[in-house]
Amino acid sequence: MRYIGNKENILENIYSILQSNEVKGKTFFDFFAGTTNVGRFFKLKGLQVFSSDILYLSYCLQKAYIENNKEPKFENLLKNLPEQESESLFQSPLEIVANYLSSLEGVEGFIYKNYTPAGTKNLSQPRMYFIDENGKKIDAIRQQIENWKNEDLISETEYFILLACLIETIGFYSNIAGVYAAFHKTWDFRALRPLELRTIKFIDNHQKNIVYNDDSMNLLDKVNVDILYLDPPYNERQYAPNYHILETIAKYDEPELRGVTGMRDYASQKSRFCNPNTALEDLDKIAKNTKYKNLVLSYNSEGIMPSEKIIETLKQYGPVKLEQFEYARFKSNNNGLARTKKTVYEQLYILKREG
């Protein structure tokens, strides 16, 4: 999944640095879960993982990837699905369900009506997030998942697994540069393909992993871990508007929309880490009020919090070390300075808690 700040390609580097600095333990809290790639990585390493994010789309991914440890069986649902022709005799239950959902006839639902050219032909600039047929297919799949839940044909875990599959699939058929704050005015080749639901993979760490859909600042008194990992926004751009369509597909709540891009209201999902002053205030609250042995702040050399201010804030609570390495910048940020500067530095501020 394309996501600003996604750590997927640099997690081994981060892990190596943490190991060399003796940042180890059995419990890990991913404070800004996002795509869950960080949580999944440390889950695969065998740690008990806790995670949280204010976005519901992230919560769906957390429920499927982090909290859940098992492949879904879909025992109730499969008894009620029609027989399907299959190219493989060894399909998993999830693959069977995904293929059925992919075969559904499209419907003219909320996504079609608001994010496809035909659905928005009355606008001066019709929205071109999805081709018409894929918009209808997204609606059909999303409505069917909800119907199965309401009919008690799928469990809560199976519900979130199917939502995660849909969320992960959308990016492969979206007519965007990387985020959903804008759409291309001509069609990207990926967006022209007929949508087929992709399945996700599972990790069993034999642990009771716990996830939250909350502002993580509300959870400080619930945290007591060996490793507290913070990966906040680096700049003044809020995450919620960049992923508004995925949030709407996840919730399927038919929100009021505004603007050329059909943005949902995100006033309740703004992060104080998108302001340099409030970011430092919250960083201090986290470092002071949370129980942890190691705090790791994963930041960016172009972030809005100055490095010296970060160190000054954290060192009140123990010795702080800054480690950094160079890596290729996220493509959707390739404007302005990024046209000439192709790399940035990932910064790891490591705080060993004293007292």
Rank of each mutant, 00 (worst) to 15 (best):
R2D: 08
K7F: 06
N9C: 04
E22H: 11
A33E: 01
T35I: 02
G46P: 15
S52L: 06
L55C: 11
C60K: 09
Y65S: 03
L77K: 12
L77P: 03
N80T: 07
P82N: 13
F90M: 15
G109R: 06
Y112P: 09
K113S: 15
K113E: 09
K113N: 15
A118D: 13
G119H: 07
S124G: 01
Y129C: 07
E133P: 11
K137S: 07
I138P: 04
E146V: 03
E151W: 11
D152C: 12
L153M: 12
L163M: 10
I167C: 06
I176T: 09
L192H: 11
R193S: 12
L197F: 08
F202S: 09
H206R: 12
Y212L: 02
N213K: 11
D215P: 14
K222W: 00
V223I: 15
V223G: 08
V225Y: 00
Y229K: 12
P232V: 00
N235Q: 10
Y243N: 06
Y243L: 10
I245Y: 00
P255V: 01
M263S: 09
Q269M: 11
Q269L: 13
S271Y: 05
P276F: 00
N277R: 14
K285W: 00
I286P: 10
N289L: 09
N294H: 12
V296C: 02
V296R: 01
S298H: 09
S301N: 03
S301Y: 00
I304G: 04
K315G: 03
P319H: 03
P319D: 01
F325T: 05
E326V: 07
N333E: 11
L337A: 14
K352Y: 07
